[in-house]
Design a protein around this nucleic acid. Structure first.
Lengths: 208, 208
DNA sequence: ACCCGATTTAACTAAATGGTTGAACCGTAT
DNA sequence: ATACGGTTCAACCATTTAGTTAAATCGGGT
């Protein structure tokens, strides 16, 4: 081997495999993905997949972990910050749409896996996000009591917040068709949403 | 045969096959579905699937058509009605959430198929929904001009409207975990959303 | 009673797919 | 140079899966 691989690091081949697997799993989902296609994209033999990752399931697990980790911590960090509720909303919307623009297939990928195997994400969230909703919940209730925002149950606000950010990514081909936007215009549309969604939510919450 | 089957109608067997296929496809998706499981659920031999529907693809196509048809026309009818924009929004939200509560797996099913084969839904929407967005678009722009609602691009309003209705269904297991709601509480949560979402959108659009 | 077409089944086939194996390769340390 | 451990590959294997077939069944019309 030209370059020995330090313990705990990825070899060139392992990295290429992972990236190929990520691309294929993200678009095709677990069931739709073919080990042969992953090998082809990585430009290596199919047996290599099993040499580095023991099985399809293990390879998928690795991809899932990294993908979910890419999306969750950003949000959690903002929720944990000490900004007020309206500022948090603005920050989350901007950070989330920004992030998803860089990984546009992740939301659909997560949703798909959520259908196939709800348990995995449940465990994952249970570990990562424990207590975070309670914190947000408390802050929202307090802001409501203070009359800072109109009354709303935290679970509704959370669902609205995430739904508004995520939906354009998972339903992209549908919305493109309905609205008649081409790919470039749709990218601009998503970019606009950082402001539009923030504005939309804050107005919805503005006390009368 | 005990009951002859009139031309153009479904036999008992065909109906049972279709219902089993619908249930399996809705939850497993195309790739995840097994013809054997569909046959088992229908309580018939696997060969019968091919007798009535020539192939997995054809069977899926039938299920998809009916499922998409169940969800689209309701919305289209309301959009085409002559109610004002705020009334239309209220009607769509109520009708849509009501409808999805009866077919909770359909949104995820559609999304999954949208990823696997965007072309099919594109064609489907192209036929069914042609012109409907243009109408809604015109009405929204007019309402904005009249100062009836705050300025918003129709594509954003549409994305918000559908996203807010649909998201709790496709992300259900995730939201259940994060919020700690059990199945019964989550059903109540969805029921609440008819009012909450309507209220949320209308306030977001209320001129200042 | 018998025929006939529609329906149903068990057994089978062909292809695809995840996974395995044993040999070859390659750079390094002895 | 040689042995060695990690790496790579072509060929192979076992299982699963969609799809086929040919025979059996069933009920109504004659």
């Amino acid at each position: 081997m030209t370059e020995p691989v330090p313990m705990g690091e990825q070899s060139e081949a392992e990295r290429k495999i992972f990236e190929a697997a990520r691309d294929v799993f993200h678009v095709q989902g677990y069931e739709g993905a073919r080990m042969q296609e992953i090998a082809d994209r990585a430009g290596i033999n199919k047996a290599m997949l099993h040499y580095y990752y023991r099985s399809k399931e293990k390879l998928f697990e690795a991809v899932f972990r990294v993908s979910a980790m890419k999306v969750l911590p950003t949000i959690l960090g903002i929720v944990r910050s000490d900004a007020g509720v309206p500022e948090k909303i603005a920050q989350i919307v901007h950070a989330y749409i920004d992030l998803l623009s860089k990984h546009p297939h992740v939301p659909g990928f997560i949703i798909q896996e959520l259908r196939r195997n709800p348990g995995r994400l449940r465990r994952f969230i249970g570990q990562q996000a424990a207590g975070v909703f309670d914190q947000l919940s408390g802050e929202v209730d307090a802001a409501v009591d203070r009359g800072e925002i109109r009354p709303i149950k935290p679970e509704h606000l959370l669902a609205n917040l995430i739904g508004l950010c995520v939906f354009p990514f998972i339903a992209r081909p549908m919305l493109e068709t309905v609205t008649g936007l081409d790919e470039t215009a749709y990218d601009a549309f998503i970019e606009e949403r950082k402001e539009v969604v923030t504005d939309f939510i804050l107005h919805a919450l503005k006390p009368t």
